[in-house]
Write a protein that binds this DNA or RNA. Structure first.
Lengths: 159, 159
DNA sequence: GCAAGATGCTTAACATGTTAAGTGTCTCGG
DNA sequence: CCGAGACACTTAACATGTTAAGCATCTTGC
């Protein structure tokens, strides 16, 4: 079997960890986790958003998002309402306090991202992101049947 | 601020999730988590290994590894001893039962990996892994000082 | 030797990932 | 209407990520 330290999942994991390690200290200084920061960034870009749509945007599962919204709400960084037309749906937006926090954190975050870009090369970075996007798209159609053991998976149906 | 859904951490996270989604059902059929499978694979490649070294190889933090080894030991999939020359160090190896489990799971795992490779392209996959490795290496020397807010990070010292 | 610090590992505490079950609301066929 | 099923979360339960603290052992300087 292929040496697992060279497998694709490990390569992706290590690369992501190398990137996130740069950001974590800055976020930690403001008592923000990586996921909380993702939520705030997603909210800052729009007026308001439904919970399910936010989960899709921030790439979080429902249960994780539920907990994070509860905590951010308790800290006063977001505001929650219920959709008038459908009482099941929750609508979330960033609060004034949340916006102020973002203004404090963003410069540091931008500086780190810029340093990473400088270090790796802007062109190469764009190329990498492109390849990652293609990988994601390639695999989106590749769903192994959940039945047989090593059983007949479908072939690639990505053009 | 750059739209966060296009940020490098998100690209890496989504790509990795797209890959792992292919493997999870197969592992789940054998009551193995992704991390447990990583440990077994690492152990299968060698005779025995110290816990700290295993953590480095499998890219797990000590506390996570501690729990996983406890569970794998309880299931009889691994064996643990103490190093003779240093009673602090634990030495881990895979058991017969663990090897048999690997023989059952490996074919399915290999088939999935092969499908991914076919789907994305072997050459492109190798190129991607190369770029990920370079990214990791680039950032290994880029350590922001943990002091100032946006404060003067060091420049890139990767050749 | 022996006390102070370093080291290897484990435990603790809290946050998230992941799946399943629970709760309230909506929709639609009868 | 109204009851069955779908839908939008939320809660629960368990495993891992992450940091800090704890414990046992080792090493070093004196």
């Amino acid at each position: 079997m292929r040496e697992f330290s060279r497998s694709l999942p490990m390569s992706l994991l290590r690369a992501r960890e190398a990137v996130m390690r740069q950001f974590r200290p800055s976020l930690r200084r403001h008592d923000l986790t990586e996921q909380q920061w993702r939520i705030l960034r997603a909210l800052a870009a729009i007026e308001a958003i439904e919970v399910t749509e936010l989960a899709r945007t921030a790439f979080l599962l429902g249960p994780s998002l539920s907990r994070i919204l509860r905590d951010l709400d308790a800290r006063g960084l977001i505001e929650r309402k219920t959709a008038k037309t459908d009482l099941r749906r929750g609508v979330v937006s960033i609060s004034e306090k949340g916006l102020k926090l973002m203004e404090v954190v963003a410069p540091s975050s931008e500086a780190i991202y810029a340093a990473i870009t400088r270090c790796y090369g802007a062109k190469r970075l764009a190329e990498l992101q492109d390849m990652l996007g293609t990988l994601e798209a390639s695999l989106s159609g590749l769903e192994f049947a959940d039945e047989g053991e090593a059983g007949g998976g479908n072939e690639c149906n990505f053009a």
